[in-house]
Amino acid sequence: MSSSFIVGLGSHHGDDQAGWLVMDRLQQRNFPPQQMTRLRHPIDLLDVIDTEMSLVICDACYGSGNPGRIHQGVWSAENSPDQILGPRRDESGLSLIPQVHSGSHTLPLIEVLMLGRQLGCGPSFAKIWTIEGGMWAPGTSPSTAIQAAAAVVAEAIWEQTFHA
């Protein structure tokens, strides 16, 4: 078993709960609680990451497909700031993960990862799962497409963590 640390980013606003839903699913499967956390703001990653960590981040995204579409990619400190390279789940070849949805009053995810690296407190590499959202109204429930996608992502993380 690898010692991945899983972070679910999200808010209470509709499909922005995608990252938290993945955490819910992992929790239901008794994923070790000390290896996972939910966060509201990407900046709060700096409170939980370290240089040696095998970091996996789950978040909502928008602008590159229908709600529920899953993207998987890798952030590396060596990439250009705006790029996360990785195969889309339903396509072959390399493509860019769309902009990760960021909450209010904070820095976006990639900027936080870069800052962590810059300050010598974050990993040089992170796996990133994003789920395409379509509805962000305050206080609303996530769509069924997002819930289904979150279950798929949780299953994939479980498999990669315990059976890779």
């Binding site: 820095l107 900027e111 870069m114 800052l115 810059q118 300050l119 010598g120 407190c121």
Partner: peptide, 14 residues
């Protein structure tokens, strides 16, 4: 950005 500021003032940003 804060990242660029952190290059110049790492201790302050930390």
């Amino acid at each position: 950005s804060g990242i660029l500021l952190a290059q110049r003032f790492p201790d302050e940003i930390k």
